[in-house]
Write a protein that binds this DNA or RNA. Sequence first.
DNA 1: ATTGGAATTTAACCTTGCCTAAACTAGAAT
DNA 2: ATTCTAGTTTAGGCAAGGTTAAATTCCAAT
Lengths: 230, 230
Amino acid sequence: MKASVGKGLSRSIEDYLKVIYKLEADSGSAQTSAIAEALAIAPPSVSGMVKRLAEAGLLEHSRYRGVRLTEAGQHQALRILRRHRIIESYLIEQLEYDWHNVHQEAERLEHAVSDALIDRMDQALGRPSHDPHGAPIPTPDGEIETIHYVPMTDLDVGSAGQLRMVGDKDSERLRFIASLGLRPGVAFDVVARQPFHGPLTIRLEGGREEVIGYELANSLQCERSGGDAK
Amino acid sequence: MKASVGKGLSRSIEDYLKVIYKLEADSGSAQTSAIAEALAIAPPSVSGMVKRLAEAGLLEHSRYRGVRLTEAGQHQALRILRRHRIIESYLIEQLEYDWHNVHQEAERLEHAVSDALIDRMDQALGRPSHDPHGAPIPTPDGEIETIHYVPMTDLDVGSAGQLRMVGDKDSERLRFIASLGLRPGVAFDVVARQPFHGPLTIRLEGGREEVIGYELANSLQCERSGGDAK
DNA sequence: ATTGGAATTTAACCTTGCCTAAACTAGAAT
DNA sequence: ATTCTAGTTTAGGCAAGGTTAAATTCCAAT
């Protein structure tokens, strides 16, 4: 019998889909062990669930080789992502949550809110296209902006850029980023960089300069905005 | 081994505690079948869960005779009730939910929100003592106002009262109540009533009169406010 | 071509919550 | 006092999701 992907997926299934979507988006593929790692469960548990998800038509599975979401699976994943990002936005804008504390809460709420509530929140926020971390919010029917940002580490000395996206996983890191006054939309010039994956120095609006370690800079998604420093 | 009632009870357990608390409050006792009925599950399922809850120290069970929450059980139940009522209040006041649509949503959210989020909502609402249906909101440490309201049907002709509480279960009923302009705080006089559980007629502020069926009137909790009509 | 190790899957089992069918009280009605 | 019955509990199952241990399979390195 064919499972009709009706309304309610279990919390667990939603988590799988979310994680698989992210793995596909980030690294192109979703291996069993990567899924297990991301969900903090044992690999055999993943094998079991993957089988069920494949039977439900949410993904395709080539044995020993990994997994790929079907249309239906992606659609579901994007629904969840939309919820997550709207919830994060709402908590930050309307309930004074900090940028860096919000992830956990959203993680639990995204499985419990109705479409109606999401729409209310979306409306209260003015139907934003991006969340406060700069990540695009999927539309209700599962469209998402395809992004072509580059990591800050791809910018050459002398070039200008705008910070676009900072991620939302690591709250330590977010706290630090916030403390530097970095947030999506901020413009900067790269004024110096050391070779061999060393730190780079950027100048922000107002002339303040900050030194950013390579690792961190590499996680900051930016848009090139000026060919050259003026 | 003794289960340490730590942080996270399952959704299912929370629902049991909530229902048992309500049954005890309403009818004094909580029978297996009443619990089953309220949760829309089969009686044997209740027996099973009751055993586990008793082992966890959340309630006491006398075989064939029903169940009684322990201190710990009541405490948990009140935590959930607090969540529920704050969420309902928040959705109505801040997100334009209707009085009568809010119950379902709160029912799901109450199991997913953190204490921190509840506190934010509570703060945004100005730390209300009652929810929009007039029900008292338990404090964070599990105190709840003991109410001594009387059903509208207990008021004699000629006496005055204030509506205090309208319940939150039946959304049809709530819609109707709202359409009559009845809400907690509204003052009225009883101007007539028919015998044998017939309808009563009340006069609202402004002089408008409404006829209320016995059943409905009996579900409206009121406070006596004047000995006699003036 | 073979082999060794890492990753994956299978097998066997556990817990939570639910179910139905059958066995058992408790208490009302005779 | 006995019986009948409604309500409760026990027994036995099932599905979802997880676990560990053992068997596979792929691939990369000899």
